[in-house]
Design a protein around this nucleic acid. Structure first.
Lengths: 189, 189
DNA sequence: AGCTAAACGGACGCATGCGTCCACTACCGT
DNA sequence: ACGGTAGTGGACGCATGCGTCCGTTTAGCT
């Protein structure tokens, strides 16, 4: 992760890089995507030039900043896939994914229309979707998931979940939990 | 509507005013809220000064532009309230409101966080919500609506519906229809 | 310790959107 | 028809965010 270039950096450069990423994660989660690059640089205690040297575009920064959150999503799906009860696993996945989205304000926005070419994460996204489709297939077999519900419906609900706005993170998470519960009701046979 | 000042305008001024409003409606619906004021002025064939004289802020312009759409929402709710079958009426309302939101890209955004002080429309919004609450109460009495569903859940789903992004209007409407159908399933007893 | 090159960050120029001023235009009453 | 005034729109100044350049600092090697 981070590529081979990360190792060739000088110690102070690597330090700054980490600090920038940490700051970006926090700021993107709290304020969303429409934060100026300079603000992130300022909060990280570096100059704008340093930020731009490490991450030429905001997209590059966001891609790296959200990498582990993307991994978390994949992990959630994979974990759901190992659940002996597919329907129960699916319910957990829906709940977890909604909450993950709610916790970070920018995470959703970063992958709807903002980044059409985020290939790095797109690959993981596709893999996760494939796993989700498999999980849904199994859940249908148990008879708990309505047969006419398709993968696109789940994607639709997750996109809709991203539209839940609230100033405080806690309120957003609470709303997403309720939304996940309603979604599960909608999917139940 | 439009207040008494509208009548005192000179004929050309009134003409321009109408043209601005029509343009704003179209542009806001198609592109969303983040369109520059000058762009609206340009498309309406007037100078920026004219636009700013009639509508000092973007909020004022949006408030007027969406007034009839807001009325359409109220009308939908009222119509649903007259339906002899409350559950059927509620289903219609959910579907219609979702589609109304989907047709105009900016309509949703204009009332979530953008305009905290749009008192004009807030009043109608409150009235519509009160009617919705009444409709839900009746639908519960018939046994078709789950008893634990509250008004806030419907508001939640409508907000979520606003998060459905798509480049084309048709795709957005289709997504909203599906979303409405799923919402109805979630609400059904 | 001294040197070299990598790294830093303040400063600059550019682009975009906002809101306002003023000389010109054209509608309306007489 | 014509004069007065409401109305117009191009032009201006301001503010904000972006991406880059260059003189200075500092880590890492000998």
């Amino acid at each position: 992760m981070g590529g081979p270039l990360t190792r060739n950096l000088r110690s102070d450069a690597l330090d700054n890089r980490e600090r920038i990423l940490d700051t970006a994660r926090a700021v993107f989660a709290a304020e969303g995507m429409d934060v100026p690059m300079r603000e992130i640089a300022r909060r990280a205690g570096v100059g704008p030039a340093t930020l731009y040297r490490r991450f030429p575009t905001k997209q590059a920064l966001a891609t790296e900043a959200f990498a582990d959150q993307m991994n978390a999503c994949v992990a959630v799906v994979d974990e759901g896939l190992t659940d002996p009860d597919p329907w129960h696993g699916l319910c957990l996945v829906i709940e977890q994914l909604c909450v993950l989205q709610a916790r970070s304000r920018g995470f959703t926005a970063a992958f709807t229309s903002a980044f059409p070419h985020a290939m790095d994460l797109a690959a993981k996204r596709e893999a996760a979707l494939a796993s989700l489709a498999e999980l849904m297939r199994r859940a249908k077999d148990t008879g708990h998931l309505r047969p006419d519900v398709v993968l696109d419906d789940l994607v639709l609900m997750l996109m809709a979940n991203g539209g839940l706005y609230a100033t405080s993170t806690n309120a957003r998470v609470a709303a997403s939990r309720r939304f996940a519960a309603l979604t599960i009701e909608a999917f139940r046979a």
